[in-house]
Amino acid sequence: MQIRIIVNGRPVEREIEADMRLLDLLRDGLHLTGTKEGCGEGECGACTVLLDGQAVNSCLILAAQVDGKEILTVEGISKGNTLHPIQQAFVEEGAVQCGFCTPGFIVSTYALLKSNPAPSDQEITSALTGNLCRCTGYVKIVDAVHHAAKLMHQKEGRSRRAL
């Protein structure tokens, strides 16, 4: 079947098998390999992408289901060579170790901070409970989300002033 979607702001048209997972469309079909497969059963969150702004596990969604919708992957988070403040915060706080879970955390954090620009510890842990990390012990991930919230706030302040 034919689907038309928007991926990271760009329109995409593809002929797909009816049973193809969104994860496979992204990784194999569009070469967006930043989205990872960790478990294939919606438990680890390494395959998290935004579907019309909502964080979802792309291993549990068929490509056919997203026809006409908009997808954002980790590759679409930053513009050009400049890191997005969330990415910058993860680097600066030491929230990255092996990095396999990182894209999923970045995307989940993006969804969180969009709806809640200054989350509490508790709001952060509840938003990220669907993302597993085996390396960091999560402490620096929580720090990074707080730090990202601050960086985004500053940036927003700056751009408002510029207007």
């Binding site: 967006l32 390999t33 990872k36 980790v74 988070i77 993860f90 680097v91 600066e92 990255v96 990182t102």
Partner: peptide
């Protein structure tokens, strides 16, 4: 010193190449 990881940049951008990539 708390030097930032050189490998973290690729990892936060989803550009680090793991074997299945």
């Amino acid at each position: 010193a708390a030097v930032p990881r050189p490998d973290a940049i690729d990892k936060v951008r989803g550009e680090a190449r793991f074997v299945d990539d």
